[in-house]
Simulated scan of single mutants.
Amino acid sequence: MPKSSDWLGLGGKTFVVMGLKNRKSVAWHVAKQLAEVGARCLFVVRTEERREEVRKLTEDAPVYVCDVRDEASIEALGQSIHEDHGTVHGLVHSIAFANYSDGWKPFHETRKDDFLEATGVSAFSLVQVANALKPSFADDASVVTISISTTTMAAENYGYMAPIKAALDSSVVFLAKSFSAFSHVRFNGVRAGLLKTSSSAGIPGYVDSWMHAEKATLRKAGLETQEVAATTLFLLSPRSSGINGQGIVVDAGMGSNFFDSELTGGS
C-alpha cells in the first residue's frame, strides 16, 4: 500500500529508469526520490560493465542491459520487463550521447555520422523504448524525458546537441498524440538548465558555461539536480494528470534574466 505521506500517489508503483551512471546523475536523484515515497525502480544501463557498477548503488533493484543503438536489444528489454514484472507505471528517459572526442567544432562542421548517432541515442530511443514497453504500460502510465531548458540559444560549445534535443522535445508531443489513440499514457519532458553531472563534464568548456548560468539565475545559485528530479516525480505522478505533451522548464529563472546588471555590467 502507498505510504500515508505519499501525496504524489507513487507508492507501490513500478518505474523504469534509464540513464543511471553515478550519484550525480539525474536518474539517481529520481530513483532516490521514488524510493522515498515507496515506489520501485527497474534500472536500465547500456553495458554489462555499467550494470556491475550500478549494482553497487542500487543494491537489490533489478538492473537490465540495453544498448539503444541496437533495435533487437530494445525489443529484448521490453520482453524481459513484461515477463518479469508485468505492469509498469512509467518510464524515466535520461540518456543522451554526443561524440566530443575531437573537441569543439563549429556547428557547420558537424559530421553526419556523429549527428545521426547522437540523434538515435538521445532522441529516437525514446520512441523505440516507449514502443517496446507499450505492452507493459499501465493505461495511465507516465513517460518523462530529460531535455534542456532551451534549444534556440546557440551555445557553441554544446555543438549539435541542441538541435537533437529539439527533436526530442518534438517527439514528446507526437508520442503523446500517438499513444492517445489507445491509452491514457502521458509523455512530458523536463527541460533542465545547466547541471553538475558527470555527463555534462564531457562537454567542452562546460565549467565556464555553468558558472555563467549560475550568475544568470534569478537566485544567483545554480540549479540543483534534485530539483530536476522533483519535477520529474511530479510529472510521473497522477497529480500531473492534466499535463501531457509538454516541456516543463526548470532553470531557476535563468531564461528570463539575460539583462541582469551583473551580467551586463550595468549599475
Rank of each mutant, 00 (worst) to 15 (best):
V88D: 08
G11K: 03
I148P: 00
K21D: 01
F182T: 12
E59T: 13
T217A: 05
K56N: 10
G19S: 00
P135H: 06
V143I: 08
N188S: 12
E59Q: 14
T150H: 13
D84N: 15
Q226K: 14
P204I: 08
W104V: 11
I243F: 13
G266E: 14
F259V: 02
E59I: 06
I81N: 09
G9N: 04
D60C: 01
P204H: 02
F15I: 00
S4T: 14
T110H: 07
V37F: 06
V65Y: 02
H212C: 04
N188E: 03
N188Q: 01
H93M: 08
A221V: 05
E227T: 08
E36T: 12
S4C: 10
G242T: 02
I243Y: 09
E262L: 13
E117D: 12
R50H: 15
F187E: 01
W104C: 04
I243M: 15
A96I: 02
R239M: 15
S122V: 05
A31V: 02
N244M: 05
E71H: 03
V228H: 07
Y100R: 04
F182C: 05
A35H: 15
K177H: 09
S178C: 05
H82K: 15
L263P: 00
S256D: 07
H85E: 12
D114R: 05
W210H: 14
Y160I: 12
T145L: 07
K220I: 02
A35P: 00
L235T: 10
L126N: 04
S198K: 13
A138E: 07
K32I: 00
G12E: 07
D251M: 01
I95V: 12
L263W: 02
F174H: 15
L77T: 05
T197G: 06
K215Y: 00
I146D: 01
W104Y: 15
G247K: 08
L218G: 11
R69P: 10
E49H: 15
S142K: 02
L133I: 02
V44L: 11
A155F: 14
T231K: 05
A39H: 12
A61L: 07
E156M: 14
S267W: 08
V92E: 01
G86K: 13
A39T: 08
E59A: 13
F137D: 03
L195E: 06
I148S: 04
V88N: 03
